[in-house]
Amino acid sequence: MKALKLDNLPTPKVEEWKYTNLPRAISADLVDAPVQEITIHKTRGQICGQAEDILFTGEAGALHSLRLKIILEEGAQLTVLERHDGSGAYWKNMVTEIEVGAHARLNHIRLVEDSGEGVNTNMVHITQGADSLYNGFTLNIGGKLTRHEIHAEIQGQNAELHLNGLNLLAGQQHGDTTILIEHQAPHSQSNQFYRSLLDDNARGVFQGKVHVHQIAQKTDAYQLSNAILLSQGAEMDTKPELEIYADDVKCSHGATTGQLDEEPLFYLRSRGLSEKAARQLLIEAFVDDVVEKIGDEELEARVSKMCRQWLGGVLSIHHKGSKDTKFLKENK
């Protein structure tokens, strides 16, 4: 894994960093914090009912080098809750390494609430064995700039990979999700489902690439990115890519970016809901669709609550100024 150094930062000239300008976001006078390394290793057949809860806190002025290693041996099962917060300006430069052995199952939930000036770059490398499951979910509501880069290698047959995420961004926030999935074995399945709500001048990036190797027949790969722009200054950049060398595969991708649809909004209002309530209902439904993918009621409730809080803030501001209504009309 390449680790980033301050004097060697990837710039938008590197294709993978096309939309995300890291050097501009990072201040030069950060001080190295001690490397923080966490390893979670579950041995063969170990089934863990209790989730591992990890918190990474950013400190003002620090350059944090974070290493997270999760190893599940054959048949092990685990849920990891990875949380991020912090205060002031900092850079978390994180490398995550995940090995999901044959028949192992990992639920990996990331809740990213970095400070409004914090930068969080996370390179994730996942390898999966036969019949394994990786179920990933990211809720990103923090940071000045975040980049979540995932490189997943499906090395065994009948493996299932789910990458789901929600980016709820406002102000000047920038959230980048860049994914490369390599199907290196037949009969496996990968799903990417990302949704973004972007307000003010926030910018979302979704680059998802699926690479199906020649040997990986009967691959089933699906990718969907939906973004709703809540203001005129918000922007979404989407770049889906499929590279397929096997001939018997099912691959599809879709992407939408736009404002909330007028039709459902009018339908709800004609049934008595205020504009604010109607918008809220539609946006909550948009968000809930992804939250439901977590597959754990308790965690879903927790994530849902965080989303509602974020939405509550954004929607009440919008309603006061009614700027969204105006925006919708201008954009017809």
Binding site: P264, Y267, L282, A285, F286, D289
Partner: peptide, 8 residues
């Protein structure tokens, strides 16, 4: 044409 509202 009644409108579909997914998720509600």
């Amino acid at each position: 044409y009644p409108v579909e509202i997914p998720g509600v």
